[in-house]
Design a protein around this nucleic acid. Structure first.
Lengths: 220, 220
DNA sequence: GCTAGTATAGTACAAAAGTTTTATGCCGCT
DNA sequence: AGCGGCATAAAACTTTTGTACTATACTAGC
């Protein structure tokens, strides 16, 4: 660890621990409680209570397990972040599956640590989270970064008119020309004309490629 | 910051600084050089030299600017990571644009800091990077997380046969049936048969929807 | 008032795509 | 030896798409 000079005047970081397993809870407490820069202001083992305690205690950081009774850690994170965006959340779990990790981060988690690794990492994660930074455990770092959307390739999709965009969206939904026409109260011929325009502007030859361009450009 | 007890026996972290602007370079050096846990083993202001120095010095961590002469920081990061995956890279730049950030991380950067913020954050980033963890500056953290691909919706794409997958990929590339046939040395009729199979298994009615499912399932 | 861009719609034709059915050879499993 | 899944292929037929060209009407900008 790299330490800046100690400044004793920083107020202690108020921490809420949300952990289901009593053993783990104890272990966490033991590891963290004698750190003078941390103040554990509350503990609970269930998600629903976690949300309530977060609102009452307004901690700086919450260390959050995922597998919790009543309300899982991801849902709890989501709810807390919604009402208290300034409360930062460190997810601490043994799950390393892609879906869990992505779900946690998308729900508003600031940092993600794996149970069983070095306590220093948890401290680093807590410190990062307090500032609103993101800390990702080495075990999942690459996984997350590999899951980033590739930068949208340049396309002329911005040049489409409003109507053309509507048609394109329905096309991506899988509608046929007559279906699109019905949906938009148009003549099928008009739909064709619009699709003509779309394909011209996007410089493609058929609707499949138009749909591909639309998707790759982030027109979800 | 949260500090674990000092263990004086940890060898100093070997750091390479890659920074274009002499003022900034000096500032960085001043900020970091009296930290006993850091050893600045080299400095350069251009990307090409950075790659060479990385190979020669094998630093633990590189602090890398983006706007560099000869070879920009992103390309340098990519090259270094390719030959030296154990060297970790902290990007330090003033660019906060989405494309730059994503490009840097995708190229293998471990951490991303914004110039002008607290030195402590840079130290945190360096510490995280050394372990292979990811640290993202608060200013860009949300941006990155919002850029995560949504979890792939369940699809039967895994049930496609090898051949069907090939055909599907070419279909997504925008090829027509005759073109696919030519590409795979098949009869157009066979291609149709495969597409039949694809559409059945994916439970869609036409190739556009098949392509959409393919893209959304991450078959890029 | 003219022009450019857009939205609308039509006709007619050509080219793909999709449907249905049938058939053969191969492979692995029982 | 037989069955199921796969890859291959064909014929015949329908539907959908795509192309080409034309035309009207509205709007915004010069």
């Amino acid at each position: 660890m790299l330490e800046p000079p100690l400044s004793s005047e920083v107020p202690a970081l108020r921490l809420l621990i949300v952990e289901d397993d009593p053993m783990m809870q104890l272990g966490l407490e033991q590891s963290l409680e004698d750190n003078p820069q941390l103040q554990i202001v509350g503990q609970t083992g269930d998600g629903y209570t976690a949300v309530e305690m977060a609102q009452q205690l307004q901690p700086d950081v919450i260390v959050m397990d995922i597998g919790l009774p009543r309300l899982d850690g991801i849902a709890a994170t989501q709810q807390i972040k919604q009402s208290l965006p300034h409360v930062h959340i460190v997810v601490l779990t043994s799950h390393t599956s892609e879906t869990e990790v992505i779900a946690a981060l998308s729900s508003g988690a600031d940092a993600y640590c794996i149970k069983g690794t070095n306590v220093d990492r948890l401290l680093a994660a807590i410190a990062a989270a307090r500032e609103g930074a993101t800390y990702l455990d080495p075990q999942i770092a690459r996984q997350v970064i590999d899951h980033l959307k590739p930068p949208a390739p340049p396309s002329n999709i911005g040049q489409l008119s409003q109507r053309e965009l509507e048609v394109l969206k329905l096309m991506v939904e899988g509608m046929s020309n007559p279906e699109i026409a019905a949906q938009l109260y148009l003549s099928p011929n008009t739909v064709k004309t619009h699709i003509r325009g779309i394909m011209n502007k996007l410089a493609v030859d058929d609707r499949v490629q138009a749909a591909v361009v639309a998707l790759r450009s982030g027109l979800v």
